[in-house]
Design a protein around this nucleic acid. Structure first.
Lengths: 145, 145
DNA sequence: GTTGATGCAAATCATTTGCATATTC
DNA sequence: GAATATGCAAATGATTTGCATCAAC
């Protein structure tokens, strides 16, 4: 994702980290495909580009990317953590327990809720990436009432 | 929690499982204290009552309790899963990233949001126990804008 | 040339599983 | 007495870490 290249190099630079070939490949792997990508899949993509990159390097790079705000992490309940490039607008994910499908939703519905929680409890929710489980329309129909 | 005893024994019974001394102690340990309890703490409480109970028994019992709807599990992001006795009204938790404090909130705010998601995306959220991270009032003031 | 990043191997941590024995129904 | 639950020990799977070497600045 060439259009990110400038930005992320600057960001690493600004936070006192180095720009390396492996970090570049790992960030590319996060961007390839859509939405979340579980770590295992990111690792697989990276290995396709370079066999010699180690898992620990992938873990370290992802942790760094999250730390400097280039990437968001999400626990999809699948055992392994998923990652996604950080987008300007926060959004959330719906994961269907029936078919395993995922869909992305904007932050409108949640923003209202977050506001109400702040008003009522004085608590500022900072979860920029919510993963909500349930049943999608298709699976609901299939399941019946 | 004597008032639960009848109910949970019946529930296990009804689902074809057995009532054992260890399960009783483990459920007591879930109920002792307030709100969530991480597995490690549950295990510690159980061991205080009976040194011979194994971790695997605790894991198996908790999985069963969740399965039959006596207990809810929550991932608090601490690495280990937390558990709480299932209450009649669903509720959610706010976890402060500043001080680590937790507070419980009702499901009013989220219910509205869940409705909206159903209306707009046809998706029925089934998360009965949300853990939301952010900053509590005290920590927000301390942190400034 | 320094300092930070990588690859490798081994460690850690939460959770699960196989199996012989003990317990509940 | 038959079926299920337990304790024990060993396995699993995700993630982390120590350390010598290598690459970025």
């Amino acid at each position: 994702m060439t259009h990110h290249r400038m930005r992320w190099e600057e960001r690493l630079w600004a936070t006192g980290h180095r720009v390396t070939r492996q970090r570049s490949l790992i960030l590319d792997a996060v961007c390839a495909g859509e939405g979340h990508t579980p770590l295992g899949e990111i690792y697989a993509r990276v290995r396709r580009a370079d066999r010699s990159i180690d898992r620990s390097t992938v873990y370290r790079a992802l942790r760094l990317f999250v730390e400097v705000g280039l990437v968001v992490a999400a626990d999809t309940g699948s055992g392994e953590t998923s990652y996604e490039i950080k987008k300007p607008r926060p959004h959330h994910h719906l994961v269907c327990r029936g078919c395993g499908g995922e869909q992305e939703i904007g932050d409108d519905a949640t923003a209202a809720m977050f506001d109400e929680v702040r008003r009522r409890h004085g608590f500022e929710i900072a979860t920029d990436h919510l993963v909500l489980f349930g049943l999608c329309e298709a699976c609901r129909c299939r399941a019946g009432p």
